[in-house]
Amino acid sequence: MKKLFSILFVVIAIAACNDKKNEKKGKSLPASGGTLNKLTIVTTNNLWNGSVGDTTRDIFAGVVYGLPQEEPRFDLTQMLPKAFHEFVKKTRTFVEIKEGEEKGVKYVTDVYASPQTGIIITGKNKEEIVAVLKENATEMLAKLKQTELDYKVAQMNKNPFDKGNVINDAFGIDLSVLFSYRVAKNKDNFMWLRKDIKNGDMNLMIYELPKNYIKNDSLAITNIVKMRDSIGKAHIPGPIDGSYMITEKAFTPIMQPTTVAGMSALETRGTWDVKNDFMAGPYVNYIINDDKNNRQLVIEGFTYAPQINKRDFMFELEAMVRSLKLN
């Protein structure tokens, strides 16, 4: 009998260890939840209402560039450590800030739910915590944004665009596109996808340029604006005769190098309007150096949604672009 109990004890112990390993791997974790681009900040009121809170808001709720009105990168919700438990821990992204511990930052994945990204920031005092926040701002924002992009792409893949192989046939690429988009134009090496939203629409353009047509030099923004305006005149008409989409001249676009599907690219954000009309909105343009196919692939998203926030619309369009796969 003692031998039997010993065997049972070993079996139970092994099972418990396996359960813990599975939890660490995310196999037994509940699905995470939360609204897109909503970030939970777990910290005390003492930290939140002082310099630490101010720095946290400056970083994580900073203004998104390229939108007609000011909108934050993330919608922040502060939560006390004692309230961060059970259901609340299933949030997809969180930042936990602790005082009185060794200075540092730690990134954790799938701790309480899956998928989940958490950032734990520590310091012996407020000055150290502020320093950690500032020193790691770029990396923290990149990791949180990637989590949200992955989530958005996974959402779109559950309800995919089902129009045959129209995108692949035209450009030899795969994109994660929602079923609610339709093909508005597909001719002359140019494709325009549209989705209706309340009081407006969301749009994605795909076309090709010769290799090295747009270079990353001092003339890049000028040349991109010229390119956009010529494409708008040829393919994106406005509501009245003689009107078409152009780049808004009063708003200086911002350009930065990036990568898409492992390929070097230029990302440009700005606003568009319509020549001879009053429509306007934000755009994000990617010029991707597809050396494999000896071309520059251009994919641009733009939105028309007057009088409502546009951050998440533009985020969806960016997620579609960043889902790119060459065939």
Rank of each mutant, 00 (worst) to 15 (best):
70 E>T: 11
214 I>K: 03
165 N>L: 15
275 K>T: 08
219 L>F: 07
29 L>S: 01
179 F>D: 15
150 D>A: 15
82 K>C: 07
247 T>M: 09
12 I>T: 12
174 D>V: 14
27 K>N: 13
175 L>H: 01
18 N>M: 15
209 L>F: 05
227 M>C: 07
68 P>T: 10
33 G>Y: 12
236 I>S: 02
79 M>S: 13
32 S>P: 02
69 Q>D: 14
240 I>H: 04
64 V>F: 00
87 F>Y: 11
77 T>H: 06
319 A>I: 12
272 W>L: 12
107 Y>S: 09
239 P>R: 10
286 Y>G: 02
271 T>K: 10
288 I>S: 00
218 S>C: 00
24 K>C: 09
221 I>Q: 02
32 S>L: 12
285 N>C: 09
165 N>P: 02
32 S>C: 11
180 S>T: 14
326 L>Y: 06
140 M>E: 07
76 L>V: 11
326 L>I: 15
245 M>L: 14
68 P>M: 12
51 S>I: 13
7 I>Y: 03
250 A>L: 12
172 G>C: 10
3 K>I: 15
181 Y>S: 08
276 N>G: 00
18 N>C: 15
318 E>T: 12
4 L>W: 08
167 I>A: 04
293 N>K: 14
198 K>C: 02
161 F>I: 09
15 A>D: 06
163 K>C: 05
207 Y>R: 06
285 N>T: 10
132 V>C: 06
82 K>V: 15
259 T>K: 15
62 G>C: 08
286 Y>P: 00
295 R>A: 06
325 K>S: 09
127 E>V: 13
223 N>W: 02
212 N>I: 05
297 L>H: 01
279 M>G: 01
10 V>Y: 04
72 P>H: 07
319 A>N: 07
154 A>H: 04
123 G>E: 08
58 D>G: 06
9 F>V: 14
258 T>H: 03
313 F>D: 08
11 V>W: 05
253 P>D: 06
106 K>S: 12
97 I>D: 03
40 T>L: 15
69 Q>Y: 10
11 V>N: 03
292 K>C: 02
53 G>K: 07
48 W>H: 10
149 L>F: 10
258 T>S: 09
324 L>W: 00
113 A>V: 08
204 L>V: 14
52 V>Y: 00
275 K>W: 08
77 T>E: 15
272 W>Q: 09
13 A>I: 15
254 I>P: 00
237 P>I: 10
105 V>C: 06
125 N>Q: 11
151 Y>L: 12
148 E>T: 07
183 V>W: 04
231 I>H: 01
51 S>C: 02
207 Y>T: 13
109 T>V: 15
318 E>G: 06
30 P>R: 06
176 S>A: 15
304 Y>F: 14
56 T>N: 03
230 S>Q: 11
5 F>G: 01
202 M>E: 14
145 K>I: 14
162 D>G: 05
186 N>Y: 04
286 Y>N: 01
214 I>Y: 02
296 Q>G: 06
197 I>L: 10
269 R>M: 07
284 V>H: 00
101 E>P: 00
184 A>W: 01
139 E>H: 03
294 N>K: 12
141 L>G: 00
24 K>Q: 13
34 G>C: 13
272 W>H: 08
14 I>K: 03
163 K>E: 14
219 L>D: 11
77 T>R: 09
326 L>K: 06
45 N>W: 09
34 G>K: 11
40 T>M: 14
213 Y>P: 01
